[in-house]
Nucleic acid binder design. Structure first.
Length: 257
DNA sequence: AGAACCGCCTGCTTGC
DNA sequence: TGCAAGCAGGCGGTTC
């Protein structure tokens, strides 16, 4: 599932491919995306990321915001034959960008350009003082808080599990119970892990692919996610799987305190 | 106000 | 083998 590194990978590839190009045609295939063909005839000025949202800035003052949610993918398609589960497509000079999404959770919106709200993005402009004041004393678990996009944007289930493992912090601890220096450690490791994820063009644990249908390489960096019952590479303990909210959390009960 | 829960979706896996 | 039930989960909206 696309998280910050996967979305960043797509944005970089889209920037190289479609910036400066005209949207010659826009097709809505899935009715849920009605109206998203109104961008026909505009030109893409830039593609940037806002949390997990892909923002295509247009030359008419508007922007297309694509959120891939769970199974959404943006794929470059050189052929006019649509991929299965194509929901929406943009035609550029020599090909198409297809939004492919089997589960239909992905969203597309077109509207006026919003001011950059990147202050909760760890890799752009994270306001740590504001975090300490507004978030750090909350009573939710640290895992839940890491995945709260209003507190910290871009981190989903996979990276949240990996970050807490490297930081040696149990996902069950309440956010309010972490000291400031523990938070600093979490943020430091989060940045490192997210950057590594971008270097590796994302984590292909299920069906993530980049713009050109290539899998990422970051799955080899995973130490806990999806590894229930396996040995922790750090301490030799056993990786456990629990439910937090409605999602799976993987962690090592021995080295995550 | 803040925390917990629900619903959107459908392909894949599991169990009988 | 076939079919139904269970599972996956980001996030906005609703409920507690």
């Amino acid at each position: 599932m696309p998280e910050l590194p996967e979305v960043e990978t797509l944005c970089r590839q889209l920037n190289a491919k479609i910036t400066g190009m005209k949207i010659q045609k826009a097709d809505v295939i899935d009715r849920k995306l009605a109206g998203m063909d109104s961008v026909m005839g505009t030109c893409v000025q830039a593609v940037r990321r806002s949390g997990k949202t892909i923002v295509m800035v247009l030359d008419d003052g508007r922007a297309i915001e694509v959120h891939l949610r769970m199974t959404g993918r943006l794929l470059w398609n050189p052929s006019k034959t649509k991929f299965s589960h194509s929901r929406w497509r943009l035609r550029f000079g020599e090909g198409f960008v297809d939004l492919v999404d089997p589960r239909r959770f992905a969203t597309v919106n077109v509207g006026s350009i919003q001011p950059d709200e990147g202050t909760t993005d760890l890799l752009v402009a994270f306001d740590e003082r504001n975090f300490q004041a507004r978030q750090a004393k909350r009573k939710v678990s640290v895992k839940t808080l890491l995945m709260d996009s209003k507190a910290i944007s871009g981190i989903g289930n996979i990276y949240a599990c990996e970050i807490l493992h490297r930081a040696g912090v149990s996902p069950l601890r309440k956010a309010e119970a972490l000291t400031e220096s523990e938070w600093k450690k979490v943020f430091r490791l989060a940045r490192r892990i997210l950057k590594k994820g971008i270097e590796n063009r994302g984590t292909s644990v299920s069906d993530w692919c980049d713009l050109y249908g290539c899998k990422g390489e970051n799955q080899r960096e995973l130490r806990v996610y999806g590894k229930e019952g396996k040995m922790c590479g750090g301490c030799g303990g056993t990786i456990k799987r629990i439910r937090q909210g409605q999602r799976s959390t993987f962690y090592c009960t021995r080295c995550q305190k």
